[in-house]
Amino acid sequence: HNLTITQGKLFFHYNPKLCLSEIHKMEEVSGTKGRQERNDIALKTNGDQASCENELLKFSYIRTSFDKILLRWEPYWPPDFRDLLGFMLFYKEAPYQNVTEFDGQDACGSNSWTVVDIDPPLRSNDPKSQNHPGWLMRGLKPWTQYAIFVKTLVTFSDERRTYGAKSDIIYVQTDATNPSVPLDPISVSNSSSQIILKWKPPSDPNGNITHYLVFWERQAEDSELFELDYCLKGLKLPSRTWSPPFESEDSQKHNQSEYEDSAGECCSCPKTDSQILKELEESSFRKTFEDYLHNVVFVPRKTSSGTGAEDPRPSRKRRSLGDVGNVTVAVPTVAAFPNTSSTSVPTSPEEHRPFEKVVNKESLVISGLRHFTGYRIELQACNQDTPEERCSVAAYVSARTMPEAKADDIVGPVTHEIFENNVVHLMWQEPKEPNGLIVLYEVSYRRYGDEELHLCVSRKHFALERGCRLRGLSPGNYSVRIRATSLAGNGSWTEPTYFYVTDYLDVPSNIA
């Protein structure tokens, strides 16, 4: 807008934040220059609390790290170098490059900038070799853009010569660093050979998330399962459950009422301010606690030095998902009996873990797994792929695949051998790939016309006998059925096997 004052003059007093240069501009645009008398524009009460600059400061050096910015700028000295009290560095987070010096300023003089007072450097006698002032900004957020400017702080001049310097606002972004852990990993099994893994992005990506790394490792069953005799009275049979499938998407929606109208769909109840505040506090606490764990609990591995020492970490090797089922080394339970199943799973520490690289999504279907087997899954978020990966501390989750139908069934015939004193040795093959492992066998036998009897055969007993022995049988026709019990439950009964026990007292003698 054009402003013209045809008559009258300007009068400025007691404006401590208004620089004289701005008042002189007002004289020019209003056409009143030359009308004012000496005392109409006070030299001592206008701009006496402001830094009124008329020179431009330029930054000469900028260096960044993930949490620091090192700045240096060209030296500046007023005509009387004693008038320079120091520099004021202003900075704040700036997602967009549209910041002005006066953003967030209120009537009390406060604003949204963080201000650092910096002492002037030592003055050199040689004007050509003056030290460049600077400042190291610490405690910054990774991968965050900051708006920065600097200006001088000078003393009051009796001659009211307006001098000083100020830089333009520059924008500097800190470097990326390792992201925080992925949030809320959930693993479920939808079949006997697959596990579905879902997660949420890290709360602090500290860069642009480029991919996720998912490692999985087959877990050995508890050692007590191999040692305890679950045929003993009072000892509860062990059981394991597989990871249940995901709930429906509708039930997972946030901010939804727990109660549904019987007449149909209901609208979600909005969260109160107290609920939102509580969630923010919980989120802040979780982030602080995660940072504490990362800094205190997890110790970084030592990389190899120039002395030739090897990095103890196993090298990563990509495998196809079809090879995942046989990740671990199978060892027989008892070496003397080769027909026992290889369900003991000690994992070799030198073995390469299978892994998958996930790009542009937060889910993965891990296939080719062994049925009813526990897996430990390790999830890392990465925001750099080359020249070397920059990934987060791992988040861990466990899951067990679903049982395989008929995996616990005894394959092959049940054979028998009759000894003296009416002892019958029953023999059968253990299931080759049971659900988890076989903890015991149930032997059901009966003599024709009598009630059915049951015998429990422990895992250890089966390994020693290759089956079991029935003792003290009365003469007669017998039928026997056997079924295995694994961590997933009972298998199917075998087809009945028949044998006849004679009275050993009636056996004919070869003595003449």
Rank of each mutant, 00 (worst) to 15 (best):
N326G: 01
V297H: 15
P312M: 06
E227Q: 08
A395D: 08
T241D: 05
Q275D: 08
N477K: 08
F337T: 13
P205T: 04
E227G: 14
P205H: 05
N490V: 04
A336M: 15
V393R: 15
G308L: 08
W216M: 15
V424Q: 02
G489Y: 11
P332A: 06
A335Y: 06
S486P: 00
L437A: 11
S268E: 10
V397A: 14
S363M: 02
Y445N: 03
F462T: 03
L364G: 03
N208F: 06
N360M: 05
P270F: 11
T401Y: 00
P354V: 06
E224G: 14
E433M: 06
R400S: 09
G368D: 05
E420Y: 11
A335S: 07
C231A: 03
V324P: 10
F226V: 08
S444L: 05
D323P: 07
E290I: 15
A484P: 13
L487A: 04
D503N: 06
L321G: 06
A309L: 13
F419R: 15
S348R: 10
L470Q: 01
T340R: 08
V414Y: 01
K317W: 04
D503K: 15
I418G: 06
D450W: 10
D229K: 04
N383K: 03
P332K: 04
G368R: 10
R286L: 06
L237V: 06
S223I: 06
G467L: 03
E221M: 15
D273L: 08
C266S: 10
G234C: 13
V334N: 11
K271A: 14
F372A: 12
K317S: 12
T343E: 06
F298T: 11
C391M: 03
L321Y: 10
H352I: 04
E281P: 04
V359T: 12
A405E: 11
F419E: 00
A407T: 10
M402W: 09
Y230W: 15
E452M: 12
Y230E: 06
N206R: 02
S251N: 09
L437H: 04
H416A: 05
Q429S: 15
N295M: 15
V331L: 10
G325P: 06
S492G: 14
K460Y: 06
V296F: 03
R301Q: 15
R240T: 13
N383V: 06
V345M: 12
C266Y: 05
K236V: 10
E217Q: 15
F215A: 15
Y498I: 13
E279V: 04
E265Y: 01
R481Q: 03
P244L: 11
R353A: 04
P238M: 06
L437C: 11
V327Y: 05
F462V: 06
E389F: 11
E279P: 08
T373D: 03
F289K: 04
H425D: 04
G467S: 05
R469F: 15
F289I: 10
T340K: 13
A405F: 13
H294N: 01
E452Y: 15
V501P: 02
R447L: 13
F462M: 11
A263R: 08
S509T: 14
S344T: 13
C269V: 07
G325N: 12
V414I: 12
I438T: 12
A309R: 10
I366M: 12
L379W: 02
E404S: 06
D204M: 00
T386K: 04
R400M: 07
G412R: 12
E356C: 11
Y396P: 04
Y259T: 13
I482V: 15
S363H: 04
G476F: 00
L369H: 01
T347N: 04
P434E: 02
P332S: 14
R318T: 09
W216I: 09
A407V: 06
D409S: 10
I276T: 11
T303G: 07
D291K: 04
S344G: 04
Y478K: 00
V365E: 11
E451S: 15
V327G: 09
S315I: 10
F419C: 13
G491V: 01
R400Q: 04
W216N: 10
Y230P: 06
Q380C: 11
P338F: 11
P496R: 05
H454I: 12
N255K: 06
V329F: 04
S363I: 09
V457M: 12
R319Y: 03
S274C: 15
